[in-house]
């Protein structure tokens, strides 16, 4: 898969092109250019290290939105077996922005669900850009209740710019559907692990985000509003999105420091979109680790810890 470079990656891509051209030329002409090749390779490594180690919050937001980044169904394929998708919320209909179903993780049956984005126009029409309608949240809860009934753990993948704010969604009570999920997820008696894999946009993310463990990929973000939305409100101009991203403390590192999340899952160099398989392995191993730990807790401890975890958000540490 050819990866589309982001704006800040372009100097690296230019050097890589130069290197490829030099290698071709040197092979074609039979001219030794080893020292020059070595120099450029060294320069590329150095540049990659500098760029990727020093990513700003805004650059991480851009990586989190990369269309070639692995989405929920990629993780389902790379981390789970025997996925059986279930459809419908038993009220209104189905929502393709929120695929959900039974699957096996290391042989153990669980429920897996998450927001699903599209990579092209046709997919985005189906997946609504990963912005779920009330049906998505109600379907998610229906399946979580199934998991509760059968004593199976739940894994959720969060990747949404936000729940869909359209007229139809409002008419069918999107806010109520999310609020209901928040309350009900707090009461579900089986372990829940949520992973923010890309965008963790506001209530849309929280609607499947009440979990015993909340993990975040290194280049994902989790926040009450998009940086563009924040900039538009605070500075009346979306061009300040970069400043907003910094001020909002929305990166995995910031949120780990504030104990909002439990673990940061490292990504391959340059971001998860460069290597889906390695990223899938890292996510799988984190899921197995956390679910194994959570299995040791009895129901009362599990529910109490989950409740306490969310109650302490926003505590003032003077």
């Amino acid at each position: 898969m050819k990866v589309e470079p982001l704006e800040f990656e372009k100097p690296i891509v230019d050097l890589e092109r130069q290197l490829a051209a030099l290698k071709d030329h040197s092979a074609g002409q039979g001219v030794g250019a080893e020292s020059e090749i070595e120099k450029i390779e060294e320069k590329i490594s150095k540049m990659k290290y500098e760029v990727y180690q020093g990513l700003t919050a805004w650059q991480r937001v851009q990586i989190a939105r990369h269309t070639q980044r692995p989405f929920t169904l990629d993780y389902v394929e790379n981390c789970f077996d025997d996925f059986l998708e279930l459809h419908g919320d038993r009220h209104i209909g189905d929502d393709d922005a929120m695929p959900a179903g039974f699957a096996r993780l290391e042989g153990r049956r669980c429920i897996v669900l998450g927001h699903q984005k599209g990579r092209n126009t046709k997919e985005n029409l189906l997946r609504n850009f990963g912005s779920a309608h009330p049906e998505g949240y109600r379907k998610a809860l229906r399946l979580m209740r199934l998991a509760d009934k059968f004593g199976k753990p739940i894994v959720t993948f969060i990747d949404t710019p936000g729940a869909y704010p359209g007229i139809g969604a409002e008419e069918r009570n999107i806010a109520e559907a999310i609020a209901f999920n928040l309350r009900e997820m707090m009461r579900i008696k089986v372990p829940i692990v949520a992973v923010v894999i890309g965008e963790g946009g506001s209530g849309g993310a929280l609607g499947i985000g009440i979990a015993d463990r909340v993990l975040m990929l290194e280049n994902s973000y989790y926040s009450v509003i998009s940086p563009e939305g924040c900039a538009a409100i605070l500075w009346k101009d979306r061009k300040y999105a970069e400043d907003a991203a910094t001020a909002m403390k929305l990166t995995a590192k910031d949120l780990k420091a504030m104990d909002v999340i439990d673990e940061i899952i490292p990504e391959p160099l340059g971001g998860a979109h460069h290597d889906h398989i390695t990223m899938g392995r890292s996510v799988k191993s984190a899921l197995v680790k956390h679910l194994t730990e959570l299995r040791e807790l009895d129901t009362e401890e599990l529910l109490e810890q989950r409740y306490e975890k969310f109650r302490k958000f926003g505590e003032f540490r003077g």
Binding site: R65, T121, N124, S131, P161, Y164, S226, E228, A241
Partner: peptide, 8 residues
């Protein structure tokens, strides 16, 4: 559009 559900 980044952060908005729109493309074309």
């Amino acid at each position: 559009c980044d952060g908005e559900p729109m493309e074309g």
